[in-house]
Amino acid sequence: MERTPKALIVLTWLTSAVFVVALYLVLIWAPQEAIMGDVQRVFYFHVAAGWVGALAFLVTAIAGGIYLARGEQRWDRIAVASVEIGIIFTFINIVTGSIWARPIWNTWWTWDPRLVTATIMLLIYIAYIMLRQGIEDPDRRARFGAVYGIVGFISVPLTFLSIRIFRTIHPIVVGSSDPTAAGAFNMTADMRVAFFFSLFTFTLIYITLLWHRLRLQQLMEKIEERKLTALSS
């Protein structure tokens, strides 16, 4: 394995710095929400984590499609790396949402479309990992991963739609004016800055983690190959 590229080191430090700034913005700089109090501050990273989760799974589906079309291994590497990060952030998204819901909706869990869809999405990608673990042949593993990544990703909006037909109580903070959703609030200008900065920060974290994870995957594949040749010789 070659040394860590300079660009990646710089990116990692930059991301860390940006993350600290984002923490400052959401925890201290942004004003306290007038009704919900401090727990509303969870919202910034909650939405950002959800965004990264969805982005990661989209990347997996696209990388899988390109892999099937071209058969180049690097696209499969991107797909796996992205799934793992997506699982981590979707998990954060669900748990923080639940923590927020406890004081605001007075329950840890409701069967709201977004909650359920996020959870099913998480299960789909855990299944994706299990599918890959069950297959030894690397080429087949990559193909099956790509197929399931695409099938799973397509089913997510349908799942959301199907549960959406029930009434939702999840607040839509961005681009909605439904005042009846419990826990809805209007963002002040400062809040909006913190919100968009969080989105930016998490996207940056995603890219940095993806890069590191890709290098890990490369090393894993190299070692796997060398082990096989060592065993066969």
Binding site: A127, L131, I135, S155, L158, T159, S162
Partner: peptide, 30 residues
């Protein structure tokens, strides 16, 4: 589609419902 993948895996009998059910949810619900 999913069963033809699952039977080629080491954990095949276990794998099919895990792969299939989360994807089926919109259909089953409807």
């Amino acid at each position: 589609l999913l069963a033809s993948m699952a039977v080629q895996a080491r954990t095949r009998d276990m794998l099919l419902p895990i792969l299939l059910f989360p994807v089926l949810i919109p259909l089953l619900l409807a």
